[in-house]
Amino acid sequence: MIKIDSFLNPDWYVMRIATTDVVTCKKTLKIGDVIDLLLNSAKRIPVLDSKKRLIGIISITDVLNFFGGGRKHKIFPMGGLNQTVSKIMEKNVITLSGKTKIYKAIEYAKHQEKSVYPVVDGNTLSGIVSEFDFIKHINTETGITVGDVMTKKPLIIKPHYTLCDVAKILCRGAYRRLPVVENGVLVGMCTPKDILFYLKTSKAYGRLKYDKTEVRDIMNKNVTKIMPEDDIYSAISLMKPGIGGVPVVNEDDELLGIITKRDIMEVLAW
């Protein structure tokens, strides 16, 4: 385990590490307009009402669900890209109070399935804190290896899977990334952002269910990887924006597991 007080003061309030310059959107914003924000600014965006109160959060996965990855697609024919964010956003938002101490916030986050948590004062948004905010302050080797904490036997996909197949997997399981494996060897990674970018550039928003494009055509082939014997500090160093999990491979690029921000959070203690 890693003692929090070796890199953070656990009695600090969570606002000490939260991002205060938060990208937000109004509930009346059209889905067609929020796509650029999701692709260029943040993968999860707090939604505010006319009085700037937090009423929801929208993610890339919500948009994929709407375009054919899940049950929200049933409302697509009723307006398509002109539908408002309020129609598909997540309304039951898990939040933190700005006066929550860091050690309590970490313990709370360990029992949730979210990667970001809006920080609120009443219903007013004060900032946002992510899993990375909790671990990025670890600035030296820990003595804990990647192999000690990685997720073994992660869900994988094959290069021939269609984008619709993968979108359904991502929406059904709330996965943030999927390794693409062929004959046991890691050949790429696919994220919700990869699929949404394809839909935007090909203008195929309403045709995801019928699109036969395969994962091999849009996956990231230049994958950042790590070895199981590396210290988890090395994994944290690789987790820049856009990389929330790093595949773990052997010398032959055979996939052994994946290490995520959540995996590292699990070894934090006080």
Rank of each mutant, 00 (worst) to 15 (best):
I58N: 05
N222A: 11
R262A: 11
K153A: 15
L96A: 03
M219H: 08
L96S: 06
T20F: 04
I156W: 06
D36T: 10
F134L: 05
K3S: 14
K261H: 07
T19G: 03
K212L: 12
L54W: 05
E107M: 09
R71W: 04
D49Q: 03
L196A: 01
L48N: 08
L208T: 06
I75F: 11
I243D: 09
I88P: 04
G147K: 01
N9Y: 01
S237K: 11
I75R: 14
L238R: 13
T142F: 01
I75S: 15
P241H: 02
V215K: 08
N250S: 06
A167E: 08
L196Q: 02
D133W: 00
F197M: 12
G98D: 02
K209H: 11
N222S: 10
L256R: 03
W12P: 07
V249G: 14
E182A: 12
K212G: 13
G184C: 02
K51S: 15
I75A: 13
G56M: 04
Y175H: 14
V246F: 02
Y233N: 10
F132A: 12
G79R: 05
R176N: 15
K200H: 03
I106T: 07
E182R: 07
I236L: 04
K27N: 13
P118L: 01
Y198C: 05
T142V: 08
T84V: 08
Y175N: 12
K52Y: 07
P241Y: 00
T213H: 07
I17Q: 10
H111L: 12
V34W: 00
N139R: 13
N139S: 14
K51W: 02
I106F: 04
K152T: 11
G147L: 04
D133T: 01
V23W: 00
E266V: 02
T28A: 10
I106N: 08
L37F: 04
S237Q: 12
D217I: 01
N40Q: 09
V129N: 08
L208P: 07
V47D: 08
K114Y: 13
R172K: 11
E266S: 14
K225D: 06
G69M: 03
S50G: 06
K153E: 15
V85S: 08
M1R: 10
G257H: 00
K225R: 13
R53D: 15
T61A: 13
I75G: 09
I57E: 14
M227K: 12
T24W: 01
P154H: 07
S97W: 01
G245E: 13
V181N: 12
P241T: 00
W270I: 10
D33E: 15
I58C: 01
L178F: 11
K74N: 11
R53F: 05
L37H: 04
S59R: 00
K3Q: 10
K152C: 03
L29K: 11
V85K: 05
V34S: 00
K30M: 09
I156F: 07
C25D: 05
L238A: 10
G122A: 06
V149Q: 05
P154Q: 09
I135E: 08
D5W: 03
L256V: 00
G56C: 05
A204Q: 12
K26V: 05
L39T: 00
F67A: 13
V120K: 05
G147Q: 02
K225A: 10
K104M: 06
E113K: 13
Y108N: 08
T140I: 08
L29F: 07
T213V: 10
T124F: 11
I94K: 12
